[in-house]
Every structure is written in C-alpha cells, then in structure tokens.
Amino acid sequence: MDSGEVIERHTLSVTVDNVAGILARIAGMFSTRGYNIESLTVADVTKDNAISRLSIVTSGLPHVIDQMVHQLDRLPPVHRVVDLTAVGPHVERELALIKVVGVGDNRIEALRLAEVYHARVVDATIASFIFEVTGTTEKVEKFLELMGELGLVEVARTGIAAMARGRDAF
C-alpha cells in the first residue's frame, strides 16, 4: 500500500444490535485481523436495550483504519460505524478512579491537586483517598502522573466515551 503513511490514533463510534456475544464478535474481529484496540467501551443506549454503542480507540496506518471501518460495517449486527476522528470535531471523555495512600504533606498535596483537576473524593480513610476524575485521556494521564509522586496505589479507568460535536446525531 502507499508508503509514507504514518500511524494515526482514531476513535470509532459503532452502534450495534445488543445481542449475545456482540462484544466477543467485535473484539475477536480486531484480534484475528491484527488490529489494535487501545480502549473499548460498550453499553446499551436505547430504552428497550436493543442497541449498544461502542467507542473504540485504535491506532494504525490510515488504510488499515479504513479497513477496520469496513470490516466492522460488514458484520450483520452492526448498524453504523463512524470514524469520529475522520468526521471532525468531537468530544472524548473518560472516567478514572484513583486510590492514593499517604499521610502528612503528600496527602495534603494530593487533595490540593485533586481540586485543581476537579477530581472528586469518593472515598476517604485516615490513610487514603479514592479520587474520581473525568475528562480527556490527556487530563487523566496528567493527573495520574502527578498522583504517582504522591502515593498512587491503584487505578481503574473506563476507557473513552465519544461523540461528534454539533447537532447531528449518528
């Protein structure tokens, strides 16, 4: 294929029939074809639980990402695949729970930084906090980096949920 392509990071939004095994089907297609998944979130998004939306963050050469879109699109339960990165401006958010253990100055500093990052304290003991932070991946990463200096012991992240900006709905 065309040389000179560079690896790009793309966010795909995929709506699917919410049927048994759909996650295995999609995740399996990525692994059998050798595509990357950096993060994947899935939840049903309609009242009757009939349709799920997946947000997949992936990376690859542009022609490979193009292939991913078409490979997803040809699975019968898939309704629509939107390459949000290709479509244009969109918002991406993820949520992380971060446990920080410490006493004294570190503890005070952690709390102060949490305030700067609008992270909420969702659990506290005399020796620990759990922070909930929401935002872009970059923001979460940055907050994690800071907490790394201040007693970070455990992280749980949701992965990206994403949506195109503007009034158009997919």
Partner: peptide, 11 residues
C-alpha cells in the same frame, strides 16, 4: 459487493 475487499491489498 464487499467494501472491505477494496483497497485491502491493492490500492
């Protein structure tokens, strides 16, 4: 008929 066959190997 299969869009994913196009540009897979040969542009």
């Amino acid at each position: 008929i299969d869009r994913s066959s196009i540009n897979r190997i040969i542009h």
